[in-house]
Write a protein that binds this DNA or RNA. Sequence first.
DNA 1: CATGAATGAGGTTTCATTCAT
DNA 2: AATGAATGAAACCTCATTCAT
Lengths: 208, 208, 208, 208
Amino acid sequence: MNMVHFLSQIAMSKKIAKRQAIVQAAIEVFSIKSFRDSNIREIAKRANVAEGTIYKYFKDKEDLFFSIPMEKTKGYVEQLDLHLQGITGAPNKIRKFIWYYLHFFNANPEYGRILLLEMRVSKRFIKTKTYASLRKSTRQILGILREGQEEGTIRKDVNIYLLRQLILGILEHVVTRWLLKQEKYNLLERHKEVGDLVLHGVGEPKMS
Amino acid sequence: MNMVHFLSQIAMSKKIAKRQAIVQAAIEVFSIKSFRDSNIREIAKRANVAEGTIYKYFKDKEDLFFSIPMEKTKGYVEQLDLHLQGITGAPNKIRKFIWYYLHFFNANPEYGRILLLEMRVSKRFIKTKTYASLRKSTRQILGILREGQEEGTIRKDVNIYLLRQLILGILEHVVTRWLLKQEKYNLLERHKEVGDLVLHGVGEPKMS
Amino acid sequence: MNMVHFLSQIAMSKKIAKRQAIVQAAIEVFSIKSFRDSNIREIAKRANVAEGTIYKYFKDKEDLFFSIPMEKTKGYVEQLDLHLQGITGAPNKIRKFIWYYLHFFNANPEYGRILLLEMRVSKRFIKTKTYASLRKSTRQILGILREGQEEGTIRKDVNIYLLRQLILGILEHVVTRWLLKQEKYNLLERHKEVGDLVLHGVGEPKMS
Amino acid sequence: MNMVHFLSQIAMSKKIAKRQAIVQAAIEVFSIKSFRDSNIREIAKRANVAEGTIYKYFKDKEDLFFSIPMEKTKGYVEQLDLHLQGITGAPNKIRKFIWYYLHFFNANPEYGRILLLEMRVSKRFIKTKTYASLRKSTRQILGILREGQEEGTIRKDVNIYLLRQLILGILEHVVTRWLLKQEKYNLLERHKEVGDLVLHGVGEPKMS
DNA sequence: CATGAATGAGGTTTCATTCAT
DNA sequence: AATGAATGAAACCTCATTCAT
């Protein structure tokens, strides 16, 4: 590696670090107020950069906003994959999925507020590339459900797309309520119950 | 009834009508853009009143916004009560609840966008009186669930608060996706499947 | 005239007066700096109105800018018509036209700076309605030139469109130089000489 | 010539070349948008240099802007001199001057837009050294006019300063209109007519 | 009671210029 | 000498709210 290359690498990592700092500041600010109520000045102040600097890294305010899930999604998917490895049987995988979902937002409530309270309901967002890659991450759940149907642990007459909606629906609902109640309890408390409900339904318990 | 009283009643109903017109215009405008992106000017134009007039009926923009669910909630609850009458058994009542929920938003997508895409995730809103009365309407579902546990159609070891979250979670999720996809299909198509999923779960079908 | 009508007339004339005040302030500001270097704040200050008020009367900064010539052009054309009345013969009319042109800008140097130093060279301006009406006012000069050709005082083989360009060219040039030299001399001093030059050309004096 | 000197000469010509590249890029950019609407970033991009580099060669944006006519004027004057050589009689020289003026801008419309639509009307520009040297180039026309008066082809009672204004006025007017009309026709078409008009005036044709 | 003209604070974005590398 | 990241001031425009009529 020659000198120029070496120096450019340092410059590059500095740029990445500054970009990260801006995104982190944006997460903090956007999680308190809505997109419209947040302002660039405060993000710049928190990131310790000038306002104009933000526009060197992001096209505009919306670009910055929608850039937030990119990194976060990557980490989420990678970790989820690790957590699912070595687990056998769809039911156990579903329980793990539920656990990890709650665990993740328990650890990232600020990002949760942005993703679940703002972006999830934004007409603009669902046209974004970021949204596409986010959807991809929920696609793996379908694989688990199909696997369950093949191994006989999940009924074959269930619409797995709707089942996914049920799982995501209750998770989103639980996390959303938790966020709106200012995270006054530990989200993970719920994980076993949610798993039971999703897997066993509301009818009579199965004889074993 | 004397004349003055009579005239004042006419004046009163006129006032109520104008208030209604403003709220209706607000629903139309707030359902297109977010609270911050909507403006009073357009609401006034649609309601055929002057901008200043809105401030005779509502304290400020937020007051107008949060006034929207009041009327709507009243109609929703009344109709839901009627629909549930004469139905026996918790499972049937749950199915009817699901059907009515989907039916209501299928008929009121504009209000749906306001309630589910905006208010449901607003920190301010959950401190509102309106929110309190809205919650009351979802409280009746607990009664149905308890009834089910007593009559033996719902397992006694299920946390009914969480079960309510599951029901509301999937319904909100289904309606939210439908709204974001510009209502391109009929929401009611889903009602039977959702009921099956909630009631039977994902395990092996029960022998009858 | 009923009361409402009467009152609305007062309101109307107030609005017109305020609009006039804004235009006048705009003339003062735009004549000092270029369009881009001028700012709305200063115009508002000079007009004694709030910045936002300007946007009630004009769509945006450019709309305000291009609104300036409207009124002025009207006055110019009307006065010019009066001045040309009762004068016989194209040469005399041309002399009067030259005199009035110089007289007008001698009396309105601020407007001159805006029209001749800014608008005349603006690609945007020539697409404006205002420009169209302005051109109309220079069209009457063609009538005079045609009249001259018919009465035999102007050579028939001269391209009158080019002749108009010559007349406007020298007038614009003379006024432009005067404006750039901070109006240090009286513009009307030039009127006779310019007339001679345009009418007699540079060749040998005609024998009389 | 020693080695160091030789190398420094190469360095020098490289510097000159880079300066030229910047000026050329500036001409391209400034001819599209106004001085204020043009930006250094785009000029730097077109010149294939960094933004900061421009500030090594020019004090600031205005310095770069006003540097444009320097080179161009030099070429214009030199070529004009060549074209006038061997031509006898003021009228023929005036015709040639007109022809060359139109020819030059026909070949350099970008520079024309900068010089005639921007600089010519800039209060700042007329205080520039560049402007002084530009004026010098129009001074030679006075020599031609005096020559004409001495040889009897131009009337002695004509104010030659005003006559120069007439010639420059119509030329500027013709070229300005052509530039604003996006150069849709060939500018040189006009040259003979303009010469006729300037030389013969509008009165009766001279008997020959 | 109704109006709508007026306000002016506030926010996003651009861009000439600097300076450390 | 060249770079280009960083700066931060400046400006247009919007809009909720007020208040005189």
